[in-house]
Design a binder for these strands. Structure first.
Lengths: 120, 120
DNA sequence: CTGTATCCCATTAGATACTG
DNA sequence: CAGTATCTAATGGGATACAG
């Protein structure tokens, strides 16, 4: 958390790193996208196949934002039919430890939660 | 990522731990709330003061969800005026390494981003 | 294959007023 | 103090059609 002066109201504002990070990777599909790209560079269609529930619109949108924020690279091959590959940038790679941690923590939560569920 | 059989369509589905985690802590204010509670048990009003932009409604809502998911405790003191304290559960505490990582990463991103900004 | 554009409904979140 | 209730504006996201 660091102090910041907002020009609008000249009030002292604090920026929390956690919020900054979550704004970048907390989008509906961004976490999974990054997680997949952690392991392998993927084409649009490959990514789509790995995320069965995402619509084309949403996938495109999330990818554009991740690109804008400098976390992923978008490489277009000038071919017909088009081929576009997405990969992590160097900055994106620095997220890997956190993504791994989130993956483990989440799976653990998910499994314990399932055990405790009452079957009806 | 683990295989899961969804009863609805009997199709094979994969659950990504990253998504599970982000669904729990990715809410608009959840990250910061958890981060504050990492350091100190806080009353509703104290939390609110630390999050100047959050509305009362949103704060209440996010706290309820965090409670439901087992990440925070809500302790009501039977006093007048009311006093309610929020703290991390044992499970919530296990998030701390991740939150610390996110805090550091986010601050680093924020600072480098500010440097690169073009003043106009 | 990898998108963009449009329409539209559902959900979200702010503002405001009220309460034990 | 710590909420709940209600109304409303804004946003989000699905479905669909079309395009380079």
């Amino acid at each position: 958390m660091t102090k910041v002066n907002t020009p609008q109201d000249s009030a002292i504002e604090y920026v929390c790193g956690v919020s900054v990070t979550l704004e970048l990777i907390g989008g509906k599909w961004k976490g999974v996208i990054l997680w997949h790209l952690c392991h392998k560079t993927l084409r649009f269609s490959q990514l789509k196949r790995r995320l069965p529930r995402v619509t084309q619109k949403m996938l495109t949108q999330q990818l554009r934002e991740l690109e804008k924020d400098g976390l992923i690279n978008r490489k277009v091959y000038p071919e017909v039919p088009p081929k576009v590959e997405y990969s992590l940038t160097e900055l994106g790679r620095t997220l890997q430890p956190m993504l791994d941690g989130m993956c483990k923590w989440g799976m653990n939560y998910y499994e314990n939660d399932s055990e405790q569920e009452i079957s009806d």
